[in-house]
């Protein structure tokens, strides 16, 4: 009986101690990890989209509450004025969700470019959506409009052999438009603090 109690106590103490330690470490590294993920996963997409900006959009990011989620907006400074933002949205592709970083000019509500950040599309076909040349096709489209593939009566040429991927990206851009519509006034308010 004494053995039994000892076993339970030792394991319980050990487990709770390690749980506490890990929770503490997780909390203290959380911010650093988030920054690293932004730099290495979303950083390349953000940098291609906001390549003409003079600041570091990853440092100058804002968080805005949208219903029950919190969204990050990366602000780019153009001609000395914070006037472009990039943010992420997602759409359903062929192999799962496609994460798309969307860059918008706050002045005319038109897209700068988009970049695919995360995807699990077919290599060689759908994976071509990560190509900056594909992202540049979206340049100049009004973000508030519904974006569609040409064969669905829209504006975007589908990637060869990857119509569903292209549809997913278009859906993500359309979703981004809805988010932008909802939050535009808040974005404009908060952007003023960045110089």
């Amino acid at each position: 009986m004494r053995d039994m109690i000892k076993m339970v106590v030792v394991i319980a103490v050990l487990a709770s101690f390690s749980g506490g330690l890990l929770a503490g470490l997780r909390n203290s590294t959380k911010e650093k990890i988030e920054y690293q993920q932004l730099v290495f996963v979303k950083g390349p997409a953000i940098r291609t989209i906001l390549n003409e900006c003079s600041n570091d959009p990853i440092v100058d990011r804002l968080k805005i509450k949208d219903a029950d989620t919190e969204r990050s907006f990366f602000v780019g400074v153009l001609n000395g004025e914070p006037q472009v933002v990039a943010f992420e949205s997602s759409g359903k592709g062929f192999g799962g969700d496609i994460g798309v970083m969307v860059g918008v000019n706050l002045k005319d509500d038109k897209l700068l470019a988009i970049g695919v950040t995360t995807h699990s599309e077919t290599p060689g076909l759908g994976s071509k959506s990560t190509d900056p040349a594909f992202g540049a096709k979206f340049k100049g489209l009004p973000i508030m409009d519904v974006t569609k593939v040409k064969s669905d009566g829209g504006q975007i040429d589908a990637l060869t052999g990857a119509t569903i991927t292209t549809r997913g990206v278009c859906a993500a851009v359309t979703t981004a438009g809805d988010v932008y519509k909802r939050l535009k006034s808040q974005i404009q308010e908060k952007v003023k603090s960045i110089k």
Binding site: K6, S18, L22, I33, Q36, Q37
Partner: peptide, 29 residues
Amino acid sequence: PSKVRIACFIVIIATFVTVVELLMQAFTY
């Protein structure tokens, strides 16, 4: 206690592995 030593070792090892994982994510992503 020797009867539950493997479980205890695994808890200790898993803790250190998670520490490494978090530190690597934070510093050498």
